[in-house]
Nucleic acid binder design. Sequence first.
DNA 1: GGACGCATGTAATAGGTTACATGATTAC
DNA 2: GTAATCATGTAACCTATTACATGCGTCC
Lengths: 211, 211
Amino acid sequence: MRAATLKLSTLSYAVLGLVARRRMTGYDIARIMRLPVGFFWQARHGQIYPELARLERLGLVSHTVVPQTQRPDKKLYAITATGRRELRRWLLEPVELVPRGDPLVLKAYSIWAVQPAKAATLFREQERRHAERLKEYKRRLKAQEAQWGSTAEDPSSPRFGDRVTLLRGIGFEREYRAWCRWVADRLDQRGAGQPTGRGKAQAARPAGRRT
Amino acid sequence: MRAATLKLSTLSYAVLGLVARRRMTGYDIARIMRLPVGFFWQARHGQIYPELARLERLGLVSHTVVPQTQRPDKKLYAITATGRRELRRWLLEPVELVPRGDPLVLKAYSIWAVQPAKAATLFREQERRHAERLKEYKRRLKAQEAQWGSTAEDPSSPRFGDRVTLLRGIGFEREYRAWCRWVADRLDQRGAGQPTGRGKAQAARPAGRRT
DNA sequence: GGACGCATGTAATAGGTTACATGATTAC
DNA sequence: GTAATCATGTAACCTATTACATGCGTCC
């Protein structure tokens, strides 16, 4: 039954992982890929609809049409037994460390080429944005805990997946914010020959657990 | 002088940032993009040579041919005044928060679909790899400090760029490792109904500064 | 003899974004 | 009226990877 050309991309598995949770439409997937999943994997509907068609040709998902009167008909997709097997296989496959490009870190690499005081503004702004996102993630975590309690600690519940990814987001943002703050502090301290007069001593490195 | 179609990609600025440090060949750029810079931005020579040609057409870099007898001739590229202006402009431009996909986090989202004990292996393996990379970054930081001393703390020195990007890498890897370990511990604790008998209490969340 | 480093380039393919295309319902 | 949500799909375009193409010198 399995098609000869089973060449799947990471997007394929992102989609499979979603339809493995519950039946959903391409529109649902696109919506989820904007927010909660969007924090660690993104896709637009322009990619999702063709991908669903491809997965169906390969026998990994199937759909049923749900007629609607006042809206276009829906296609509800579900994962097949083959699809679930393939998802499980991929899940346990080891992952390569492939760092994704971060434009701010790229800018940091060339930061010596601009006036420190101006550069500091960029990093303060970025610190603010990451602090905001951190706050949002924490809010979500609290909401999860209030709604699900300890079921999110059971590794065989999808809640567990939601929880661990969110905790990754929180760790990431906390660390990123600390780095931005430290870079900005350094730039202000030595910037443009103007002593800032701030009383606090500057740390030699960003805050972080010592290991 | 500035060409009408000045539409640059992030890669363009990565290349400009490198030739702003010192004159170099496409081959040099490709090599640096594998290692130090490759940790936060990657590009292969298949992308770099056409990009250099494009930047030269736009007047942002220029090259001189260095004849060699026993190797192919080199093209040494340097940034122009226009290129430096454009690089500075980009550097101070605010950055959008667009996190790129992390396949391990994507797997974590679906981790409920496989046996916890098997999943734990994946995360232990990943923890090991990130610990290795962390060690490598720390080694590089020590080497930098030994070689350059406090010049790397001057924000107008390229060393500063090297240092802050490396410190970002260290923070990232430290945080990532802690997360992997925590997920693996959770999976082992509740996994497959087998009590592990380990004496240590399991933390409710990954270790991290409380803020 | 084979792999690796130096040195440049192009072509085919894969992956991903943006815009085009349609159309009803609801909320401001 | 105008924007947002629901709902699907395609086409043009840009970005990035991999493979093809060449060729000498050095090290094991």
